[in-house]
């Protein structure tokens, strides 16, 4: 049997959940003040997912980087793999908010999309 401690983040109470697991399955939960805490615990113990936000390098842009986000939460164990992939790519300006920059990243079915518009760099003024 395995014991896990989690903090429920469904509401501001932040209950400390004590969870007992048997063969990866939850056998008991305590510390939750309501049922939403146990739903959260089940999700966290079986298939935890997180949104990923980071940046992608932009060539010839108003800024050298564009912020990006996953269009759905990514399984937690894929976060660092996805980061390595995202760090390796470059896109050319202009980039539009909502543009998909990487499709189906690491086979997760999740897309990485631009989270703002980056216009082309303004041409240097000739004086």
């Amino acid at each position: 049997m395995e014991e896990r401690k989690l903090t429920c983040i469904v509401c501001p109470m932040g209950c400390q959940l004590n969870i007992s697991l048997e063969d990866g399955k939850i056998s008991s939960i305590s510390g939750n003040r309501c049922n939403r805490g146990s739903v959260y615990a089940h999700e966290e113990c079986t298939a935890p997912k997180r949104m990923l936000t980071t940046t992608v390098r932009v060539i010839d842009g108003f800024h050298p980087f564009v912020p990006v986000k996953s269009d759905k939460p990514i399984p937690k164990e894929y976060l660092f793999k996805c980061m390595n992939l995202i760090r390796a790519i470059k896109v050319k300006a202009p980039v539009k908010s909502g543009d998909i920059l990487i499709q189906d990243i690491c086979g997760t079915g999740v897309n990485i999309m631009a989270a703002r518009t980056i216009p082309r760099a303004e041409k240097q003024e000739v004086s």
Binding site: M51, T53, P67, K69, S97, A115, R116
Partner: peptide, 25 residues
């Protein structure tokens, strides 16, 4: 907001979770 690239903005105002730059845009 332009440097706050994480999400969690706009839940109360737009009813959806945006990143800082999206909220600004």
């Amino acid at each position: 907001l332009q440097q706050c690239i994480h999400n969690g903005f706009g839940l109360h105002y737009f009813g959806e979770e945006l990143t800082g730059p999206e909220y600004a845009e």
